[in-house]
Structures are given as structure tokens and as C-alpha cells.
């Protein structure tokens, strides 16, 4: 990996809905800038993003409402550019510039 590449970033948008916005300062949309590659020089994935969101974006202490046993809590749907992430490789999906990632909870009533 060249030094220049390590400094590259990719910009994506991240949306929260279905009640999840409550964990993220009641804000539904975030612009997120990520390094293009992770610490070991591999392209950043959804797993990296989820970790990043928990460490940098979430102010609410109830992390387990978003991530349970190191995975997205069952009952939370993830859409990558409007497609179910199950079709895109889930946590292994490599993020692309301008991706839109939506986390929507099915767990809340109303």
C-alpha cells in the first residue's frame, strides 16, 4: 500500500430510521467520511463502518440496542443503496464512494 492511498477517504451517507435515530442524537442522516483502507491496508467494509458508528457517532450508552454479540442486533434491517444487505455480502461488503447505508429498526411499535 502506498502512503498516498492510506490517506484516501471515502464519503458515504448513513441514515437511521424506525426508532434507531433515537440512539444517534435524534438525527436521521449523517455524512460520514471513512479512510479508504483499514489499519491492515484492506478496503473498508460494513463491519468497519458499524464499528466506526459505535465508536464515533453514537452518544447513547445503550450500544446493545444497535450491536449485540458483535453483530447488528437481530431485528434491525440494513439496506445498502436500497438493497437488503443480505444480497450484498453483509459485513463483508466493501464500501464505495457515495454509498447510502440505511439502518432501520423493526423492533419499535407505535
Amino acid at each position: 500500500m502506498s502512503a498516498a492511498k492510506n490517506n484516501d477517504t471515502i464519503d458515504i451517507t448513513v441514515d437511521f430510521s424506525g426508532g434507531l435515530e433515537m440512539l444517534f442524537d435524534n438525527k436521521r442522516r449523517y455524512s460520514v467520511s471513512l479512510p479508504a483502507v483499514d489499519g491492515s491496508g484492506k478496503p473498508v467494509t460494513m463491519a468497519f463502518l458499524i464499528d466506526h458508528l459505535c465508536t464515533h457517532l453514537m452518544k447513547d450508552p445503550r450500544v446493545d440496542l444497535f450491536v449485540l454479540d458483535k453483530h447488528i442486533r437481530p431485528g434491525i434491517l440494513v439496506l445498502i443503496n436500497d438493497a437488503d444487505w443480505e444480497l450484498e455480502g453483509e459485513e463483508a461488503y466493501e464500501l464505495q464512494p457515495r454509498d447510502n447505508i440505511l439502518f432501520v429498526s423493526t423492533l419499535h411499535g407505535g
Partner: peptide, 19 residues
């Protein structure tokens, strides 16, 4: 429930979610 949420999402329905 998953499909209900996706139906609401893709049809852009206006719903309220809170506990």
C-alpha cells in the same frame, strides 16, 4: 415484520416509530 418495514420503506409510507 421485516417485509412490512420494507413495504413501508419502498412505498415511502409515513409512519411513526417510538417506544
Amino acid at each position: 415484520e421485516k417485509e412490512i418495514v420494507l413495504y413501508a420503506h419502498h412505498k415511502k409510507l409515513d409512519y411513526f416509530s417510538t417506544e
